[in-house]
Design a protein around this nucleic acid. Structure first.
Length: 263
DNA sequence: CTGGACGTC
DNA sequence: GACGTCCAG
């Protein structure tokens, strides 16, 4: 009888070991296959990267705005909740002080979100967090409510289709830009948006570079390579991707994998 | 959705 | 300055 109990105990132990190994093996597999904690952040040309709860940014003090704002957008983030629009406050995390919203008053330019409020509607906290002056840039009303809005809606459409995207947005901060307000907030002449769909094995990306003016043209007219935006901004996008994949993605302006429909 | 203007306390 | 209401693309 003692032998039989010992055998049962050993079998139970072996079974537990197999389960344990199998379980861990599964976890490791998932991390490799989906890499849920992929670091999608670009490099910073200013050294001032700021992490908020629901998006990150790289602030450029000279131009009084972010050179990029980056965030993850998933299907779960989309929401029909309505929150009251908040007032823009300074970003307390920007050590050099982000611009005061008053610079925009009567400037002829709107306070255009870089991380759209409409992409952070899953909670009041997330929504309100987009109302920081480190997250805005001077935009013409006709541009902001027009083609730029169309692009932002397109991203939300793509999330419904592709489930999860990484979005990086900014104005091209080049020399001799017009400025507004006492703090001289620069007015970019072009804005870019880069979208990465990190679903292996078919990782795909698309980049837009749009002149800062009203346009009725289809969005596909503004597709460029990521390399082109890197050359204009000096920013390295997706440095964490394996070099081979990064190189291939960034020199392509092929958008056939992205459904445009009527846009 | 993207925004601003204006009146009131 | 904050809030409510109204407006346009």
């Amino acid at each position: 009888m003692k032998n039989r109990k010992t055998i049962y105990a050993i079998i139970a132990l072996l079974f537990a070991c197999i389960l344990y190994i199998y379980d861990n093996y599964d976890v490791e597999e998932k991390n490799i296959s989906f890499s849920s904690n992929f670091n999608y952040l670009p490099t910073s040309t200013t050294g001032q990267i700021i992490h908020h709860n629901y998006y990150s940014l790289s602030y450029n003090e000279k131009f009084e705005q972010a050179e990029w704002v980056a965030y993850e957008l998933t299907l779960e983030h989309l929401s029909n909740q309505n929150f009251k629009r908040s007032y823009f406050e300074k970003d307390s995390k920007v050590k050099t002080q982000s611009a005061n919203y008053k610079n925009y008053k009567n400037s002829g330019y709107n306070k255009g979100h870089l991380c759209p409020a409409g992409d952070r509607k899953f909670s009041k906290e997330a929504f309100n967090e987009t109302f920081l002056t480190s997250n805005i840039t001077p935009q013409l009303y006709e541009f902001n409510a027009g083609i730029w809005n169309r692009l932002e809606q397109k991203v939300r459409y793509w999330v419904q289709k592709y489930d999860k995207l990484y979005v990086i947005t900014g104005g091209v901060l080049s020399k001799n830009l017009k400025t507004i307000g006492s703090e001289k907030v620069a007015v970019p002449t072009q804005f870019y948006k880069i979208i990465l769909d990190y679903h292996q094995p078919k990782i795909k990306a698309i980049a837009f570079l749009i002149p800062h003016k009203a346009s009725e043209k289809g969005l596909y007219n503004f597709v460029v390579t990521i390399d082109e935006i890197e050359n204009l901004t000096g920013i390295d996008f997706f440095p964490e991707l394996p070099d081979e994949i990064e190189s291939k993605l960034e020199k392509s302006s092929n958008y056939t994998n992205w459904n445009f429909r009527n846009f």
